[in-house]
């Protein structure tokens, strides 16, 4: 009986719908990446494992977040950021692994991890410690601080070390793949601030009346696009590169 109560989804609740869809999509993507890992060349196995871990960690968190949301009707902010604290640095690991063959140093990985943690910690303070009723200045300050981390990652992916290493890799597959991931950072990651600005005091909340429930709607959509999409790009690089090796 309790089980049925927890799983009841209101027909008009798009957020609950995306929590469930997100959970299943992440789980399905994880299974796909783990199974496909056996089909790719040895040097890509770790990349696919990381892709699978990203979606699997997200699936577990989505399992808890959907119940939390249905039980309380509130944003599962803490669970959300715990998920991101684990998965976003893993996305940075993907950049490192892709460019490692071209000479990426461990320092690149740490810089990307630092920037992603900076971005998340500032975002968490902005969201979780928002004063009662919402404060625009609080939301703006921490939002901008978080954006600095994002801009660093964006620069690294488009012009910085990652882009240069991809260019030096002499592999069209890696070049194209890294560029696609850079597009994910530019467009896909930009969906998150839209959700952030829906919280009480956020600009979209104040100017357009978008309620705080939309925070999760945008986050769920962004997570599905970025985590699964990111993994699929890595998968595509791995499988194409492995097939090229076989035919060579």
């Amino acid at each position: 009986m309790i089980f049925l109560e927890v799983l009841t989804i209101p027909k008009d609740d798009a957020i609950a719908f995306t929590f469930f869809t997100g959970y299943m999509a992440m789980l399905a993507a994880s299974i796909f990446f783990f199974f496909e890992r056996s089909r790719v060349d040895g040097k890509w196995k770790l990349s696919l494992l990381v892709s699978g871990l990203i979606t699997f960690i997200a699936a577990v968190h989505y399992y808890y977040m959907r119940d939390y949301y249905l039980a309380t009707g509130e944003n599962p902010t803490a669970l959300r950021y715990i998920d991101w604290t684990l998965t976003v640095p893993l996305m940075c690991v993907e950049f490192y692994l892709l460019t490692k063959a071209a000479g990426a140093k461990i320092g690149l990985l740490w810089k990307l991890i630092f920037a992603s943690v900076w971005m998340l910690v500032a975002g968490y303070i902005g969201e979780a410690f928002n004063p009662e009723g919402g404060s625009t200045s609080h939301s703006v300050l921490w939002g901008v601080l978080s954006t600095i981390g994002y801009i660093y990652i964006l620069y690294t992916a488009w012009f910085g070390e990652v882009a240069k290493l991809a260019e030096a890799s002499n592999s069209d597959v890696v070049k194209k793949g890294v560029r696609t991931l850079a597009w994910f950072v530019l467009v896909g990651w930009a969906i998150y601030p839209i959700g952030y600005m829906c919280m009480p005091g956020g600009w979209l909340n104040v100017a357009f009346g978008l309620g705080s429930q939309n925070v999760d709607l945008f986050y769920n959509i962004a997570d599905a696009i970025n985590k699964i999409g990111f993994g699929l790009v890595v998968y595509n690089i791995a499988i194409t590169s492995s097939e090229n090796l076989k035919t060579a």
Partner: peptide, 22 residues
Amino acid sequence: MTRAIFVFIASVLLLLPFILNE
């Protein structure tokens, strides 16, 4: 993306929240 586009996007992202707040 050109560097000019990057500078534009970064400037918009960093300045817009302050300007909207004002």
